[in-house]
Write a protein that binds this DNA or RNA. Sequence first.
DNA 1: GTTGAACTTGACACTGATGTCAGGTCTTAC
DNA 2: GTAAGACCTGACATCAGTGTCAAGTTCAAC
Lengths: 121, 121
Amino acid sequence: MRIGELARRTGVSQRSLRYYEQQGLLASDRTPGGQRDYPERAVDRVIRIQELFAAGLHSKKIAQLLPCMRDADGAPSEIATPRLVGELTAERDRIDRMMTELANSRAVLDEIIDTASRPVH
Amino acid sequence: MRIGELARRTGVSQRSLRYYEQQGLLASDRTPGGQRDYPERAVDRVIRIQELFAAGLHSKKIAQLLPCMRDADGAPSEIATPRLVGELTAERDRIDRMMTELANSRAVLDEIIDTASRPVH
DNA sequence: GTTGAACTTGACACTGATGTCAGGTCTTAC
DNA sequence: GTAAGACCTGACATCAGTGTCAAGTTCAAC
């Protein structure tokens, strides 16, 4: 599929898709004319990339871990090095802390919403 | 307490604390010489502010909701307007989505770590 | 007082993913 | 072959919180 369709199907802008390619996160074939041609599986990959960005990982680290991910169709093409495992573990811990903070913030919002919505007594 | 101690106790830089004040998130008394003087409760407040930043809220919205928060010592000083409640509800929903994405990303990392740590068989 | 640490304001830089614009090329349907 | 839409590269802008530096002031202890 071409970039427009991929953008539409993933909700990610064409600009970002090109950026992902530049960062080595997303490969594409090219038509004879030089336009990008993506395989079907690119859809899932883009969604994963977006999730990892949302989790606060930088493109460089995402580029390192992507080959170690199990794709929908099978085994990972690479196994993480001990060094990478260490970094990913740190990221996982950071995500855990982030989730705790998010839960706190959610509770704060919830209480404010609740207080404002409760009938005055 | 002065800004250095507050920074030390919260782990937030002096630069950020001044920024918070500029954005109306954090008040301070001043010494006769013009230096900032914070009450004890500033510590908790700064931590809350950091959490809300981590949750993706912008300073303007944080400034709006802070007066509606129940402090450690009692009732909120303001009740959220319906408009603010709507916005906060949207933020809460966004946080919920973010937590789901974080859980997904965490699982991705976990599997990679797990695969790399598992003895070859 | 004097000294050194801590504080003040103001300005400028950075980060890193994304938006946007310009000028040109490719694709597809007629 | 031509028109319209989709795509290409490259460049510059943006956002918002934070880092950092400079030049000057205040505080606390001696």
